[in-house]
Design a protein around this nucleic acid. Structure first.
Lengths: 167, 167
DNA sequence: ATTTTATGTCAGCGTTGTTGACATTCCAAG
DNA sequence: CTTGGAATGTCAACAACGCTGACATAAAAT
């Protein structure tokens, strides 16, 4: 007999087209909420989402190279370069020539960069925290499971590597 | 005593900054997977995500007005108009002047429009179905709970109205 | 010495957001 | 009935940020 109403019987009602459609729409609307608060802050600084993403992952992995960042963000170097240039010009990011390999540029947040990253992060985390708290730990575990299953294979590998610490 | 290992004790470890960061990154990477398959199809037709969204919601609510669609999609009428124009020119969408209020345009998918919408939907649903199946019904329930809690309030109202049937 | 790799620049294009200006239609106040 | 405002949708132009392609530079690898 099913535990929690969804035991080993697995009636598969959660896989109907109707359920999938609801999930798809939820994903669409939720992503808007996910980016809404940072977007409002970014607009004040005349930056966009691309700047936020760059700041986030540079903060996440201090000293990462441009190439690393490219593969994480999944954009072309030309596209990232435009964003990085403005961040460097504005003194939020520092680009240092590599010591071992002087072709590489290692990226670091400046004090100002850390400040903006923190402001953006806090806004995004506040919403996430509220959502987590409202849904509860069980729901959060399921949330993460489904998201991870939804990623493309190579992206998931990157994500898990990032998630579990940087070697 | 806790049931499922996370009972009323609620140790709140799921609310640490570290956990929130993982959720944020999971959301970012998963959204890329979420749109990847439709994006590949759209590219073949020289369309973009905005076309997909329009097709989806017109299919969802046959005869909806432009204004309705605007509020669901959360873009300006000018932005939507550009997309709609190409879809109408290409014979995927039909726009009929309102009978009661002739300022309104009611939108319908043509046979070709339904075909493309189905192709896109099936690709997106296939990934979603795989993710749901891999994660299981409990996880899916949690996934939806967190997503709904993450939406902005007015958007959530729209979503729930859509979700539970169109009056 | 030559080739490959990593980075960056410049030029240009497409999608999809944005505002501003404007036409049409409806409705309500006078 | 007329007029003025609100609602709706269209057209034009601009910005952010993806993309490709061509090319320069510098260092590493062979």
């Amino acid at each position: 007999m099913p535990e929690n109403g969804v035991g080993r019987g697995e009636n598969l009602l959660f896989l109907t087209d109707e359920q999938l459609r609801k999930g798809i729409e939820a994903m669409f609307f939720a992503y808007r909420g996910f980016t809404a608060d940072p977007d409002r802050i970014l607009a004040q600084y005349n930056y966009g989402r691309a700047h936020h993403r760059a700041l986030h992952f540079i903060n996440r992995s201090h000293g990462t190279t441009v190439n690393n960042l490219l593969s994480v963000l999944g954009v072309t170097k030309q596209s990232l370069n435009r964003v990085l240039r403005t961040l460097i010009e504005d003194g939020l990011v520092e680009s240092r020539v590599g010591r071992r390999d002087r072709r590489e540029r290692h990226l670091y947040l400046t004090e100002a960069g850390r400040a903006l990253e923190a402001e953006l992060s806090e806004a995004q985390q506040a919403r996430m925290r509220a959502a987590y708290r409202a849904a509860g730990p069980q729901a959060v575990a399921g949330f993460r499971q489904v998201l991870e299953a939804m990623m493309e294979d190579d992206i998931r590998r990157q994500y898990l590597q990032l998630r579990d610490g940087k070697p």
